[in-house]
């Protein structure tokens, strides 16, 4: 039996879109293997992995991503919880605040931030300082992910059920709310990782050698190594997404937004 033609059209569309994504990646991959003339090999990769600065910058960005996730969630989980439970009328204000990072250009943010935030040397004198703007940059994504997750839960009933059973606020948030937000939390964390790994403006202006700054530096000195690094950063994102997929499938069934049917 032949497939009806109308089924081919979406397939064709998907194929074209797929090519749009795949061709630049293949080209970048091919270029990263180019060693001059018609010679191809892994020289660019070999050179990269022997650069201590790569590992330092990658390590720094990963550490900053983790710190950003932690600070962002510690601030936003209770805030979005309270918004959904008790102060729904403030939703327009939250929505407005959450999109501010899109409106204020990073270059303006960094200027304002350096005059506003002062403090001990371990904070302002080190890359830890970057966590502040990164939390702000990740705010729209973290807020949205958490808000969607919490809206899907019947927070009022779950809160009252746990209170009537004797639970306090901390027990409620840690044992009831957070475990039911796994998908939302992972989504927020993944987006934060993507933002922090790729953020250039703040780190470059504040003179910290993060992964994005290092990619830029390598791009100016060795084009093939920059292509290899670009693929590497893609790989990190893909691994993170695979992680999300596997977390979503396995476990004890709690990774469904909304929880109950």
């Amino acid at each position: 039996m032949s497939r009806p033609t109308h089924n081919l059209i979406p397939g064709l569309g998907l194929g074209v879109i797929g090519l749009y994504f795949v061709i630049p990646l293949v080209a970048t991959g091919a270029f990263s293997l180019w060693e001059g003339g018609d010679k191809y090999g892994l020289a660019a990769y070999a050179a990269l992995i022997h650069q201590p600065k790569l590992w330092q910058s990658l390590g720094l960005s990963v550490r900053l991503a983790i710190q950003t996730i932690l600070v962002g969630l510690v601030v936003l989980v209770p805030a979005v919880f309270w918004l959904n439970l008790r102060v729904q009328r403030l939703r327009p204000l939250f929505d407005f605040l959450s999109v501010l990072p899109f409106v204020v250009p990073p270059i303006a943010l960094v200027a304002g931030m350096t005059t506003l935030y002062t403090g001990p040397d371990w904070f302002v004198g080190t890359a830890n300082y970057l966590v502040v703007p990164y939390v702000i940059l990740a705010l729209p994504y973290t807020y949205r992910a958490l808000d969607v997750g919490m809206r899907a839960l019947d927070l009022k009933t779950l809160t009252e059920a746990s209170q009537s059973l004797g639970a306090g606020w901390m027990t409620l948030i840690l044992r009831v709310v957070v475990p039911n937000l796994t998908t939302a939390l992972i989504g927020a964390a993944l987006l934060t990782i993507a933002i922090v790994m790729g953020e250039f403006t703040f780190a470059n202006i504040l003179l910290f050698n993060t992964f994005a700054v290092y990619i830029d530096y390598v791009g100016q000195t060795s084009a093939t190594q920059a292509a290899a690094l670009t693929l590497l950063s893609f790989l990190i994102t893909w691994l993170a997404m695979l992680g999300v997929l596997f977390t979503g499938r396995g476990g004890r069934g709690q990774v469904q937004i909304g929880g109950a049917r």
Binding site: T157, A161, S164, G166, V176
Partner: peptide
């Protein structure tokens, strides 16, 4: 007294089991 301190069991109209 706060609800958590009242020692009252409650069953709600909406399904209220903790999904996790």
């Amino acid at each position: 007294l706060a609800p958590a301190k009242r020692q009252m069991g409650m069953v709600f109209q909406a399904y209220s089991l903790f999904p996790n």
